[in-house]
Structures are given as C-alpha cells and as structure tokens.
Design a protein around this nucleic acid. Sequence first.
DNA 1: TTTAGCACTTGAGTATGTCGAGTGCTAAAA
DNA 2: TTTTAGCACTCGACATACTCAAGTGCTAAA
Lengths: 346, 346
Amino acid sequence: MLTQRQNAILQAIERQYTDTGQPVGSKVLATLLPVKVSSATIRNEMAELEEQGLISKEHSSSGRVPSTKGYRYYVDHLLDQQAVDASDVAIIQNSFGTNFHKIDEIVSQSADILSNLTSFTTFTLKPEQKDIRLSGFRLVPLGNHQVMAILVTDSGEVESQTFAIPPDMNTDELESVIRLINDQLAGLPLREVLQRLQQDIPMRVMHYMHSPNGVLDIFDNILSHASSERFFVGGRMNLLGFSHNNDPRVLQALYGLLDKNENLADFLDPQNDDVNVLIGNEISNKLLKDFSLITATYDVDQYGKGIIAVLGPTRMPYSRTIGIVSAFRQELARQLLEYYHRYYDQ
Amino acid sequence: MLTQRQNAILQAIERQYTDTGQPVGSKVLATLLPVKVSSATIRNEMAELEEQGLISKEHSSSGRVPSTKGYRYYVDHLLDQQAVDASDVAIIQNSFGTNFHKIDEIVSQSADILSNLTSFTTFTLKPEQKDIRLSGFRLVPLGNHQVMAILVTDSGEVESQTFAIPPDMNTDELESVIRLINDQLAGLPLREVLQRLQQDIPMRVMHYMHSPNGVLDIFDNILSHASSERFFVGGRMNLLGFSHNNDPRVLQALYGLLDKNENLADFLDPQNDDVNVLIGNEISNKLLKDFSLITATYDVDQYGKGIIAVLGPTRMPYSRTIGIVSAFRQELARQLLEYYHRYYDQ
DNA sequence: TTTAGCACTTGAGTATGTCGAGTGCTAAAA
DNA sequence: TTTTAGCACTCGACATACTCAAGTGCTAAA
C-alpha cells in the first residue's frame, strides 16, 4: 500500500503527463504538489514508486511516465469517481434529437455524440434481448420484376432487401414459399432459423420451385444481417489523431479491426455492469496494446442491455472520459426507454 | 515538339521514378536508354526538358522528377494506349460473382474489385438515367406499431425505411395520406417530388392528420437518400499507404472529403466519354493536388451512364492503371446490360 | 553534335561538443 | 528518522563541422 504522499505524487504524474505528453521530472512535481517538499524528497519517493512498477523512465535520466500498472492503480484508487463535468452532462442531454423513428438511429447517433465529446473512437451496440425470435418474413412486390423481402423479429427489429425475380419464377411460387417458411420458422429463435434455412427447409421448398437456392440465399442474407448488424462505430478517423504510430500498415490493420464486427464483440464484452476500464496490454488484442478501452453496459429494463465503449490512447483523461461514459449510459438508457414507452406501451 | 531522344528520356524518367520513387540522375538514365549516349549528353537534353517545364529538380544538384506538365505530356503522347495486361483483364472478368439481385451490389462490388486491382482508392457511381420519375410510395405495416415506407422509381431503384407510428395516429390516416401522395406525385421527376413534398403537399395532408410533419419528414428522408446514394467508395484505407503526407489533420480532411458525396461528384464528372486523366493541380480541389484521378464513364445503353474513378498518387503507373480502368468500364457495362436483360426484357 | 573532364552544389550521414533537465547518492540539517 | 542541499553523472536535443556520393552546368576537345 502506498503512503498518502506517494498517492499524491502518482496522481500528479498522471495528470501532468496526460496534459503535456512529456515525462514528468522531480522539480516540476515539487511545484505541483499541495504539500511543499523538495525535489530531492520527491526523487526518493519516485524511486520507490518505480520499484513497485507504477512508473517508469524512458531513459536513465528522463522524467517518469505512468506504467500500465500505474494507470491501473490510478484508475482503481485515485479517481474522484463522482466528478462528472456538469457541462458535459448538459451536452449529452441536449444532444439527442427528438424525432427518432428507429432504434438504430438513436444508437448510431450515440456513437457520434460520444466521439465528438471525447474526440476518441467509440462503439455502440444495440440492446440485445437474449432470445430474439423470428416474427415473420414479408414479401412486397414492387413492380418491375422486383420484390422486397422483409424480416421482422419479435423485438421489433426490421431488416429488408430487394431482389429481382429470376425470369423462371412466378410470384405464386414465391408466395407459397414464403407461406411455407413462415409456417415453419415463425416464433423460433434466430439462431435456429438460420440452421433450418440451411438444412431441412431447402428440401421442402423443392416442392414449389426447381432451383430454390437463389431465393433461400436472400433470406439467409437478410437473416445474417439482422443478427450481425448490432454495431456502430463513431469517430473512426479520430484514431488518426491519437494513434502516435503513423505506420500505414498498422493503421490499416487497426481499421481492418473496426470493420470486422465479430472480433470487436470480444473486447467489448464488459466484465460487470459498471463502467469498465481496460488499459494497454490488458486488452486481449495485441494491436491495441497502446490503447485504453472504456466500456459500459446500459440497461433498458425488459428490452435488454446494450454496450457503449470508448477507445483512446493509454494516456487519456480517465476521469473525464469515465465521467462522460457513465453519464452517457444513463441518458441513452433513458432515451431508449422513452422510445419504447412511446411506441409500444400505449 | 520534342525530339525522339527527348521523348525517350522523358519516358525513362517517368518509368524509373514511378518504380523507385527516387529522382533520376543522368548516369542511371544513360544505362536505361536504348540508344547509347553519355551522361553528359543526357544532361544537356534534360536542361532542355527542364526549360520546357516538363521535369524539375528537388534541389540544385538532385536528379530530375516529372512535373505535372511532364506527366501530362507523358500521358498524352508517350503512353502505349493499347497495352492492357492480359492477366488484369482475366481477373476483372472473373471477379464478378453471378448471383446479383441488385444493381447496387454490382456497382459497389466494382469499387472493391477496382481498388484491389490497383491498390488505390476508387469510386463508382450507378448508371444515371437523366429523368428518373417517382413510380410510387408503398406502406407495409409490420406489426409492433411499425411501418415500412418504400419508394420505387421508374428506373427500378428502391429505397426504404422503417418508422414507428406515433401513438396519436391510426393506420387509416396513413393510408389516406399515402394515397394522396401517390395520386399527386407519381410519375413526376424526383426533383419535383422533393419540391412538392415541401411546398403544397403539407397543406393537403392537413386534411387527414393534425401534425403531418413527422410523417412527411420520413418521405423527405427516403427521397433524399434515393437521389444521393449513388456513390460507392472502394479501398478507402489504401489512401493511408500512398498519401505520403502523414499529418493526421490532412488525412482527416481527405477522409472527410470521401464522405461528402456532393463534393466528389464535381471532380468525377468526366469531360468526355473516354478515359480521362487529371493530374495534380489539374484537379479542382486543393486537397488533392498531390494526387491523380483517372475517371471513365461506362455506358449501359438506354439504362444510362455511370462513372468509375481511381484516385492515386501523382506518381502512379499510368499505363497499367489506365488499362485497368479501360477494361473495367467495358466489363462493368457488360455485366449491367446482362443484368438488365436478364430481369427486365424477357 | 557528342563527349570527357572538372569545379561546384546539395542532402545524407557521422562525429563532436554544449546545454539543460533529470537522476542517484551522500552527508548534513531538522 | 526524515528531509534537504549539493554534487557528479547520464542522456536527449540541438548545433556545428566535416565527409561522401550523387548529381549538375559548363567548357574545350573530339
């Protein structure tokens, strides 16, 4: 355990370093601390902190910089948890428009608001109900040989796609197929629907059309969209600003990561229902070893839980960012609840 | 006009410089030229070329680099126009899948193929018929208080959006509004539809519902999507590789440009129906002064003309890139014609 | 008209020195 | 026992000076 003074020193180093980006030396530190001690004393204390692995030097006579362990200690013990900037809260509350017609809009706009506020890169996931079921497929003929296929889930998610009807197929056949599919699959969990679509459904559809693959592909496609498109990324390009590493290959790899939703889901999954902070190599992906990730769930009661996350440099203003995330999760939950109530529970 | 030998020298400089990225000196050039002359002679010739503004030095004793004017001359006079790499052509022809159900798919996939092939950033625009008219809006109730609004144009374009029905509105009202809108607007050019939706239609709708704005917003929204979403960008991140300038602010500005479709349309508009090359500051936007842009139209007969474009560094393998673009425009036109024939002219 | 030769220019790289910020350690002061 | 002043030391940043190689322009001879 650290002494009071060591805490103060570590905290001052963290603050100063995130402000300036420069390693912090004993002399500057002496002017910063509330208790007046000489630089020599501070040097002794810093030697102790370094021994514990909380701070480190870039070279033998440079100032000190917080290590991953130091940031961790800072976040765990030295943060004023409750200090959320009032103006940030105001911005958050005013930033949501009022005319939402879709959950996607709210959640995707959230990613943008959050990235504007933090100037980092952000992620938002829609609230997920554990057990979404297929409510049904619809087919809407549009004329011009085109048809729109629409998938609706019992949670109100909608996914659609248009396709052209192959010449060797008539609408009656299609209608029959849709009826068959709905009969067989409505009410089932999406996962199971996907399985069935690939396994026994093709056999049955054979009765109605000779080459069902094209059409079934469409449903397959819509379905996988519906189950994968839960992700929104905000402030993609902010990454350029804080990714110190300007090697184009690294940047391309990073952006590749952002576009592969599956991989991201792993990092973001929060350990608990509070605001989580992952620092540097605590993140499982090696590409992100110089970043910190702040994640939080937001809880929309019976409508499920979603995730918001901020990806920034290890050297980030943790206090402010955590404050923003914390305020944001609440406001987002409030917005969504309001939305659901407005439209569903009348 | 240049002499035969000066042409050869300019060509050699261009080739060598795009290969190595280094300024080319007289000695190296002497080994490269087919006709054997001494480096001194080449120096004399280069002095002449420099006087004409075709090449330039980075400093008083460096090798020469083609200037914008030099590239222009090279592209206009020294290119083997017909040299399209056979293997590139094969790749292009095999790269299109067969199961397209939407024009958007073909055109957006085109941007990706083209960027893979060139490793630059690419743009594709859908074929545009001059005078697209509104065929009609559809409303599909989805249950769960949700409705999907679908716009169909006479060119077969489809745009859709779901929205939740406000509590104070019943479906009958909606149906009436849709009937009104369709009666009034079907058959009109999209531009005019947009105008009417903002001007006299709101008045008429007032008869059926007290607060029409929310609903009309939706149609407005769908409509502007339909008329703006003609753009696809491929290989966005390739920009990182060849944008020598690693200043994050410049990069952010560039990517900002890619996301604002309107601005892009101006650059891309080709002067004529052939393959066009714009070099460096020939491009109107100053951000792109170190880039070259190769654009071409593709012609799908009565279904309109589209545009494909490649954005790369000024120092680019013009011959190969132009060849690829040229082959690609033909193949893309072929694919789209085939698509249209398959589905429309039965 | 071409070429060889030469003086000149320049950027890149390397060695050298100075300066300032920072450190660890020690011995004296508190 | 804790704190502090002092001092020798280290290292990066910066500047200067020098060399080297690549390249140039120009001139005079081939």
